[in-house]
Amino acid sequence: MNEQPVIRTQGLTRYFGARPAVYELDLAVPRGGVFALLGRNGSGKTTTIRMLLGLLEPTRGAGTILGYDIRALPPEARARIGYLTEEHQLYGWMSVRECGEFQSPYYPTWNEKVFRGIIGHFGLRPTTQVKSLSRGERAGLCLALTLAPEPELLILDDPAVGLDPVARRSLVESMIYLTRRSDRTIFFSTHQLPDVERVADHIAVLDHSVLRACCPLETFRNSVQQVRLRFPSAPPPLPKIPGLLQAFRSEGELRVTCVHYNGATEAALRALAPAQMEPVPLSLEDAFISYLGDRGEKSFILSETEAQP
């Protein structure tokens, strides 16, 4: 990836009072593809997005978006970015069609076909009034209004929140539709790991205001590994294992989850002389929960090279 990232931050930090909401964030989002920002509630996802869009002043640090300084985003930069929040402002008395007609003059790149396509995809009728739309339908309308100008960079802050499974699927399909143009980038925050599995190329993981992973999705999955060790009797006490995230002990069995599992990890486990030792494949959800669990060692997953055993 020689090209300049569409989003890059260095030491980006924001305090609310004495508490950092985002601390020393170094993020790089490559151009093209889908990038998911993950983390538990209150981990700093929304604060990050608001700083990237120039809606919130960083306490310190720097960032660029499409090459522009986030502290001084010119209107031409904003015009190339689509931003979808939960609190999209819509007038209740307008019809769906009128919402499009109201917005389109502001965007020279407005694509009416995209607008109608997404409206139809969410099952919306152009004549329905905004005030009588369900939550999922409203989300569909907001998405159509955000996508119709065909933004170069689409930023979605938790777009799946409150959507039923059908509307959520329509959302994911719309995101996939956008990837038809390989120069388009989607950056979205979410708790929906099934959606992440479907659409994301890269992920970043925020944990208590600190970035703990920024890598291809596959790298993350490969980095978090679980091993099951069987013993003829009670398992011995666990020595210090590098990258240990979790250890479950039961009669004759020890299940150990580690990050950056490598030869050294394996040697340390083999030294316990288990009768049997086998890897246990983890789902993305299990890997994520282990990684963010409070018990283990805090690590950082950065790039492909670091994750190789």
Binding site: G33, V34, E173, I176, Y177, T179, R180, R198, V199, D201
Partner: peptide, 14 residues
Amino acid sequence: VRALAEELVLNPNT
């Protein structure tokens, strides 16, 4: 690739 990605609702890169 494109058709299967849309059918299975997946990122085409996958």
